[in-house]
């Protein structure tokens, strides 16, 4: 179906060589995609800022969580200035430092939730596609059930069950995200499965696990990577939504969604309170989308657009 599979009709002993070509080509193509490069740069920037924040951010901008209550009335809701580039919030804390620490939450949730749903999706998809029959019916029916739920409602109920806190947020988002990945993986496997080299491997006596991991998985990896990248953005948006509804991380820790919620009541008077964290979400999700688009084009993965 794609160049990825076309190039990979060699037995596994030679698998490494074409793979390098594939990824090498893809990387070259990705580098020519200006938007994707921009996305990568922004992601690297955000990741670096989030990782190193402890070393410089509180020193420069003050604590992201604590405040001096005796000064609160005088320092709260200040408009953006040199001292506070993004202004201060209702309790007198610097908004920029909270946005910086909020990146940790968004990135953690984005990556871990995606990892979880990808893992579950892969296993489910493999079960359905490779074994077919009853397995296929069960897995796909289960996926139907999950997809029949109104998504936001389902996450909210899951979090009501699990309680608040960052780990529950990414677990809930991760668990609920598997059906789409499972479907993609299933259809990829179904098309790869028909290839001669899979039959050949089976004829040579390779085990199921070996066939899946050594032959089918490498040939589906391109589409998985693309889907996962796009999924990160989606998970970040879901986390923001949950925090906005008050079900995310525990206060006083900042998260972009919580900051938007906090800012909502000051929309008319101090709009920067909700603007800044929103821009952070927008740019970060956009970066992952651009990277995902770039990867899709570079790896020549065909996707349904919706």
């Amino acid at each position: 179906m794609s160049t990825a599979t076309d190039k990979k009709e060699a037995p596994q002993s030679q698998a490494a060589a074409p793979a390098r070509t594939l990824w090498g080509d893809a990387f070259a193509r990705l580098r020519r995609n200006k938007l994707a490069v921009l996305g990568v740069i922004w992601i690297i920037f955000i990741v670096l800022v989030a990782l190193t924040a402890d070393l410089w951010a509180p020193q420069l901008l003050g604590s992201p969580t604590e405040m001096d209550t005796t000064q609160a009335a005088a320092t709260s809701k200040l408009p953006p200035s040199l001292e506070h580039p993004f202004g201060t919030d209702a309790l007198g804390r610097d908004v920029l430092v909270r946005v910086i620490y909020g990146a940790r939450v968004s990135l953690t949730v984005g990556l871990l939730a995606t990892a979880i749903s990808t893992m579950i999706g892969l296993v489910m998809g493999a079960l359905a596609a490779y074994y077919g029959g009853l397995w296929d019916t069960i897995v796909m029916r289960l996926a139907d059930i999950f997809l029949a739920f109104p998504y936001t409602l389902f996450v909210v109920v899951m979090l009501a069950v699990m309680g608040q806190g960052i780990q529950n947020v990414f677990i809930a988002i991760g668990i609920l995200g598997w059906p789409s990945i499972a479907r993609v993986f299933r259809s990829t496997i179904l098309s790869v499965k028909e290839n001669d080299y899979v039959d050949a491997a089976r004829a040579l006596g390779a085990s199921d696990v070996r066939i899946i991991t050594r032959h089918i998985f490498p040939n589906s990896v391109a589409s998985i990577v693309v889907y996962a990248t796009m999924n990160i953005g989606g998970a970040i948006l879901t986390e923001a939504a949950l925090s906005f509804l008050g079900m995310g991380v525990t206060p006083p820790n900042p998260s972009w969604g919580i900051m938007i919620q906090d800012g909502q009541q000051y929309l008319a008077t101090q709009p920067w309170l909700m603007l800044m964290p929103g821009l952070a979400i927008l740019t970060t999700v956009l970066a992952f989308t651009l990277l995902g688009d770039g990867l899709r084009d570079a790896l020549d993965v065909k996707m349904k657009d919706a």
Partner: peptide, 8 residues
């Protein structure tokens, strides 16, 4: 917000 101030 109230409890964040108490916490501080």
């Amino acid at each position: 917000e109230i409890m964040e101030m108490v916490q501080s």
